[in-house]
């Protein structure tokens, strides 16, 4: 396959960036999108140019490191992570636009790499349970209803890639935060900190400069892990409950 790429190039956070056009040839339909970028980078290095910086790690769709907005879609046209997107989703001769996640809370570090530290700080605000560490407790000691376990697992699937923020017209992190809040709040292990968790994580989310939710549903459409849109309503329910119980003291 022969492709025309228009890639966002930006030297450093302060520098102005621009879309730069590259042509890549000899791309196999079986390559992943990241392998296609590797091919471009090998080419650029041979020509003595600066390779395109992009985030990647496990390349098996479970770590949440890869990003990229491809032709306006977070993680590209398939509902998966960029590393699991294959070139067979494109046609020979296509022009493909590759851009970084765009959000005030995710500043560009270089080219296609953005700083997603804001997500880490939301997790630090309450995405944990306070429990003594040590050997794993007996699995049957705390009974979890099947429906709750399923719900927790569904939300725990979030890999924190940030596609929800990238897809949201408001750069909102509501889907991410709701996945993390709901994951722990439905479980008995998470219930002692149920109220403070949601209050602190939402406050942190707002402090990081993410936008508000207008329920456009773009986040859930882009999510490679299928975190459902009703998660946001569930978090709103938790938040309002926590304000009622905790507000004013």
């Amino acid at each position: 396959m022969r492709l025309n790429l228009r890639v966002w190039r930006q030297q450093n956070p302060g520098a102005p960036g621009a879309m730069v056009t590259y042509e890549v040839d000899g791309i196999s339909r079986d390559m992943s999108f990241l392998e296609m970028l590797d091919t471009l980078n090998e080419d650029l290095i041979l020509r003595g140019e600066d390779p395109v910086a992009f985030d990647h790690d496990c390349r098996e769709g479970i770590c949440g490191a890869c990003s990229l907005v491809i032709n306006g879609d977070a993680h590209g046209p398939e509902r998966t992570t960029t590393c699991q997107l294959h070139m067979r989703s494109f046609a020979d001769g296509d022009t493909i636009d590759v851009e970084p996640w765009r959000a005030a809370a995710f500043p560009v570090v270089k080219d296609l790499v953005v700083d997603r530290g804001a997500f880490d700080r939301i997790i630090q605000a309450g995405g944990y349970i306070t429990a003594p560490t040590g050997s794993a407790p007996e699995a049957h000691a705390t009974a979890v209803p099947k429906a709750d376990a399923d719900s927790a697992f569904e939300h725990a699937e979030c890999i924190g890639c940030g596609a929800c923020v990238a897809a949201c017209p408001n750069g909102s992190a509501m889907l991410f935060t709701s996945a993390k809040v709901n994951h722990l709040n439905v479980l008995p292990q998470g219930s002692p900190e149920r109220e403070t968790r949601v209050l602190d994580m939402v406050a942190r989310m707002d402090d990081e400069g993410f936008g508000g939710c207008t329920l456009t549903g773009e986040c859930a459409t882009a999510c490679p892990k299928g975190i459902p849109l009703p998660s946001i309503a569930a978090m709103n329910r938790e938040w309002l409950r926590a304000v009622r119980k905790h507000g004013g003291n």
């Binding site: 228009r6 966002w8 879309m19 907005v69 032709n71 306006g72 636009d97 851009e99 765009r102 959000a103 005030a104 809370a105 017209p169 408001n170 750069g171 909102s172 400069g209 993410f210 936008g211 508000g212 207008t214």
Partner: peptide, 12 residues
């Protein structure tokens, strides 16, 4: 706030 949270628009 929403407009400020997406300062750079997508080219595509």
């Amino acid at each position: 706030r929403d407009i400020k949270a997406r300062p750079v628009k997508y080219a595509h």
